[in-house]
Simulated assay, not measured.
Amino acid sequence: MPLAHVAAAFGRDRSTASHACKVVEWQRDNPAFDHFLTRLEWHLLAASGNAAQADASSLMTGEGA
């Protein structure tokens, strides 16, 4: 999804969305934060009906429900 669409959904500018993505990626160097985001991603995929993708993701990361 283009950053411009994400930014518009939050009422922000594309450059603000880009900066937010960079900040989150920098924070992923923190193992606890990375684990939290990995779990969040898994749950969002599972809730959206992409169970197969969530299961594949859990195989790559060693995570599970």
Rank of each mutant, 00 (worst) to 15 (best):
M1N: 05
P2M: 10
L3N: 14
L3G: 02
L3R: 15
L3I: 08
L3P: 00
H5K: 12
H5D: 12
A7W: 03
A7Q: 06
A7C: 03
A8L: 08
A8K: 15
A9L: 13
A9N: 12
F10Q: 10
F10H: 15
F10K: 14
G11V: 07
G11T: 09
G11W: 05
G11L: 10
R12L: 05
D13C: 05
D13F: 02
D13A: 08
R14F: 02
R14M: 06
S15L: 09
T16E: 04
T16H: 04
T16Q: 05
A17F: 11
H19P: 06
H19M: 15
A20Y: 08
C21P: 00
C21F: 07
K22R: 13
V23Q: 14
V23T: 14
V23C: 09
E25W: 11
W26F: 07
Q27I: 00
R28P: 04
R28L: 07
D29Q: 12
D29R: 15
D29C: 13
N30T: 13
P31D: 08
P31A: 13
P31W: 05
A32L: 07
A32N: 07
F33H: 10
F33C: 04
F33M: 14
F33D: 06
H35I: 00
H35Y: 03
F36P: 00
L37W: 03
L37E: 01
R39E: 11
R39Q: 14
L40E: 07
L40S: 08
L40Y: 12
E41C: 12
W42L: 10
W42S: 08
W42Y: 09
L44K: 06
L44F: 06
L45E: 01
L45D: 01
L45H: 03
L45V: 03
A46S: 15
A47I: 00
S48K: 06
S48Y: 02
N50C: 05
N50F: 06
N50M: 06
N50L: 08
A51P: 04
A51V: 11
A51E: 02
A52N: 02
A52F: 09
A52P: 00
A54H: 01
A54M: 03
D55N: 13
D55C: 07
D55V: 11
A56R: 08
A56H: 13
A56D: 11
S57Y: 10
S58K: 00
S58M: 03
L59N: 07
L59D: 02
L59E: 04
M60A: 07
T61N: 02
T61Y: 01
G64K: 14
G64D: 13
A65N: 12
A65W: 11
